[in-house]
Amino acid sequence: MEQDIELLLDNCINEMRNGKSIDECLAKYSQSATGGAGQLRPLLQLVQQLEILPKPEPAPEAISGTLINIGHHIAQRSMTSEKLTAVEKLQKKSSIFNIIRRPKIAWAFSAAFLFLVVLFSAATISANSVPGDILYPLKLATEKVKFLLTFNSEKKAELRLTFSDKRLQEMIAVFQQSGKLDTTLLKEMLDEAKLALEETKIPSDTASVFVTKLSHVNAYQKDVLEKIRPQVNLSSRKIVDEAINMCDMRGRWMRRMMNEENEISPDSSAPDSTGSPQQMPRSKQKSNRWQWGPGCDWMK
């Protein structure tokens, strides 16, 4: 019953909003109102009064004041969000360096950096050291590392040549300082030159260039040895003679190889320990094309 009257009241209000009078509404719903018309009428009259209550409009100043305040708020919020974005970016950046910032890790990084600096400086200074110097072992170690870190065959061969030249320079330096011939350096010089060709597989298109270079190094070493020879004592002179002889034979072999590369079997012309060409089975000839023989074993 009460639900009916609530619905009737609502329907009547809607009808009145569509322009009908209270009487028309009540007439329409008189049958279903079941005597509730008397109850509805005063309520609908009240609704009429409520509907004409003034619709207050806010003062324009109040609206504009609010809008200004909200504008300030939006501006502040934008600035804050920009700041936050900047801070977030900074935090992201700093998070990368956070590990480094930790004292222990920072110390380790500093120590490693210092160690590398010292090592690099020492390696640079040691480049001019000779046997007997404190830094000479570091020089040899640097050379070994450099060689191990080189993966290109051609560059490895170039390095061997460089090492051979360095041993020659060291030998000269030692000889000038002490007047004695360092046979170990002489052996290493010849061995490095031998290894330059043996230990690497140089592509055939650059092989002739490299052999030419090696030939020049060999000739230079022979010249130096010939200049030293008169100044060394008798026991060392024999060794120098043998070394000159070996250089001589190597030079001949290389010249012949360059001239007859395509015609002469390199294995048959490769010098042995005494510098004479080695005799090898034909099956091994190709793979040992650049074989020079055992090198400076005679010095041991």
Partner: peptide, 30 residues
């Protein structure tokens, strides 16, 4: 700005009939 202007009047009327003074209604609406 448009949204606030639109809302202000509605909220103001809603508040005006429930508080005692125009100033209060304006403050609360803001």
């Amino acid at each position: 700005g448009i949204l606030c202007s639109h809302l202000y009047s509605k909220i103001y009327r809603f508040i005006y009939y429930r508080v005692n003074a125009v100033e209060d209604a304006e403050d609360l609406t803001s």
